[in-house]
Design a protein around this nucleic acid. Structure first.
Length: 206
DNA sequence: GCGTTGATATTCT
DNA sequence: GAATATCAACGCC
């Protein structure tokens, strides 16, 4: 049993916030029941100085949660069919968020399998940001939810802390710009970590 | 096991 | 019109 994560732990810069979120548990109430996932892979995104970030070119209706206070969900729709979920960082006015990329299901495995019946192995249930969001039932309606409140349908519980020696870093997945920034963090050896795919322009096939 | 491809909303140009 | 913080299904080893 763990306590809710403090908002202050996320109002720091995005890198310490990303490291802090590793090992934390995301608990979500879905139509099928409650699912909890321990985060093993995250990516940090910031504002004006991060070309890979949605907030790089200023505030829009979609990314406005990134500019708001820390500890809220930024859920966005990509590729016309998937949702991805971030936790906002930094204080009001400063854009930042941590993308939740992968996690290990800690409960309830039966509910989780019901939600994603096509997953071949348990470690595939929340392997990748869109899979994780769909497993937790996150969509547009959860944009802006406060994950530090016990009354929310989605909550982040703190720790157990991941030893620094088990944390690895590297370039973010699928981003074309700012590839020199090692802003992806994962737990060494976790089988749920998504495969690295360099952010290249896919060759046009036509 | 691996590479290719289709689905297609939102944003920016 | 083009790119994108993706996944799953398919063909082919």
């Amino acid at each position: 049993m763990s306590a809710l994560l403090d908002r202050e732990e996320l109002s720091t810069d995005v890198l310490p916030a990303a490291v802090r979120l590793l090992g934390c548990t995301v608990e979500a109430d879905t139509p099928d029941g409650t699912v909890a996932v321990r985060l093993v892979e995250v990516e940090a995104y910031r504002g004006a100085d991060d070309p890979a970030s949605h907030s790089y070119r200023g505030r829009t209706p979609r990314n406005s949660v990134m500019f708001g206070p820390a500890g809220h969900l930024y859920v966005y729709f990509v590729y016309g069919m998937h949702f991805c979920a971030n936790v906002s960082c930094l204080d009001e006015g400063e854009a930042g968020a941590v993308l939740m990329r992968a996690g290990e299901v800690v409960s309830d495995l039966t509910v989780a399998r019901t939600r994603r019946p096509t997953a071949r192995r348990d470690t595939d249930l929340a392997r990748g940001p869109a899979r994780l969001a769909s497993l937790l039932g996150l969509d547009r309606e959860h944009n802006g939810v406060d994950v530090t409140s016990a009354a929310s349908p989605v909550r982040v519980l703190s720790g157990p802390p991941v030893p620094a020696s088990r944390i690895r870093t590297g370039p973010r997945v699928g981003v074309a710009g700012a590839r020199e920034l090692p802003w992806r963090f994962w737990v060494d050896g976790a089988p749920e970590v998504s495969a690295y795919r360099p952010g290249r322009v896919r060759p046009r096939t036509r």
